[in-house]
Design a protein around this nucleic acid. Structure first.
Lengths: 233, 233
DNA sequence: CGATCGTCAAGAGCAGTGCTCTCATTTATT
DNA sequence: AATAAATGAGAGCACTGCTCTTGACGATCG
């Protein structure tokens, strides 16, 4: 046999993918709440009950959309990072920041699905974790690369000392930023949350009627964040 | 007449408030998606159609819950700020940070309603704006107070210059931080988005399996943010 | 005082949802 | 060829938001 899949398995995989694609289009239009299994079935010309052969519940369909979304964002971030010279750490940081924002602007409902409030009655299963950290490892690698290269500016003298109780948490984060001391890990976390906090505020309307040139403000804010982390310009 | 309201108007206001209270309880249990007008009516022992006399649609009910939420958070922030000596700017900042986090932990679904992804098919009307900025003016006042008192540390020499295109946006933000120069406004925005970015990440599960002592990490992160703004310890 | 008009609760009903069950058909395996 | 597994379709249940109509209550005005 040329393919290790039977014809049945092939058409099943194809249909599963097509259902997810149709669902993603509906998600892009109506948002997570407007995603309807029946509507997907209608658009595909099949009975609503048939869709349940491929996705046992609406939440399962949402889960695959979430995983796909994390992977799409992660890939965008990876590509942005790879397009900048490896030792230009500040440039890499700025590139991934813009990649996140650009992806969010291009896929607002998917971004809301990933980083907004959990969908009503939906509990994220463990399956999403590997995809969810795909972009995170990129941020971590930039910081740890800069640290290993000795390119990180030291924090100013009056910086508050890291509390001892943070040691355990820092050790866990160090899996993504190998060899990085605790205070740098904190600064990385602050920049990370600052990036998504800013993008979320812009996406969810908190900046409405205030920041009318969000692209410029974002670029400058992330440049400041880079300095907070210690990435030299 | 002792009250300027007729008996009819009084019972109407009372019932409106009671419906909102029941809805808020359901919101706290099931989240925004689980909020059902019919369930509210059931719990109150009235017909579902009767509820529509008080709230013309589910979205209107959600809107009042959102406004109430903003006001509750705003009040918590105001109280936290007022409990700290007026010239202890860093202490005031830390107090409001913890007020936000504590309120979010105590009202997770309401927080998600305010700062999570917009509810499916729900478009926030203008009515929410005044309540939504109630906490924001507190942050702005802390920064502008510190600046007026000359208590703000200057940014380091290599800080990236504020782009000229940000001038218009800064002017709008200055309505909340009177007399504050552009670069300080930027630092205030970064701290503001960093605060809510951190709280949202904690509330929405992005820290799961990584930060197990979120209270300590939050306190330290916000202390670092204070230094970024220039608030002396 | 009695008629009127605005307000209100209730019920029926529509269109939509997620999901389950059964039944016939198609496909793959033995 | 016979059997077992997988698939699609339809009906149906319980639920949702929302509308419309009907009948009753209460305040106001002639």
């Amino acid at each position: 046999m040329s393919s290790s899949l039977t014809a049945r398995e092939r058409v099943r995989a194809e249909l599963t993918r097509e259902i997810a694609d149709v669902a993603r289009r509906q998600l892009a239009v109506d948002g997570a709440g407007g995603l309807s299994l029946r509507a997907v079935a209608r658009e595909m010309g099949m009975a609503s009950s048939a869709v349940y052969r491929y996705f046992p519940s609406r939440d399962d369909l949402l889960t695959t959309l979430i995983i796909d979304g994390y992977n799409a964002l992660g890939e965008a971030v990876e590509n942005a990072d790879a397009a900048v010279p490896h030792d230009d750490h500040a440039g890499r940081w700025m590139a991934v920041c813009h990649a996140v924002r650009d992806w969010a602007l291009a896929h607002p409902h998917e971004y809301a699905l990933l980083y907004g409030s959990p969908v009503p009655g939906y509990k994220a299963p463990q399956d999403t974790v590997p995809a969810a950290v795909r972009d995170t490892v990129v941020y971590g690698r930039i910081v740890s690369d800069a640290h290993r290269a000795g390119a990180l500016n030291p924090p100013d003298a009056h910086h508050p000392p890291v509390p001892a109780s943070f040691a355990d948490d820092a050790a866990r984060v160090r899996a993504i930023m190998p060899g990085v001391p605790d205070d740098v890990i904190v600064r990385g976390l602050i920049a990370w949350t600052g990036l998504f906090g800013w993008v979320s505020f812009e996406m969810f309307g908190q900046f409405a009627h205030t920041i009318l040139d969000p692209a410029a403000a974002f670029d400058h804010a992330m440049r400041c964040q880079a300095r907070t982390v210690g990435l030299s310009a």
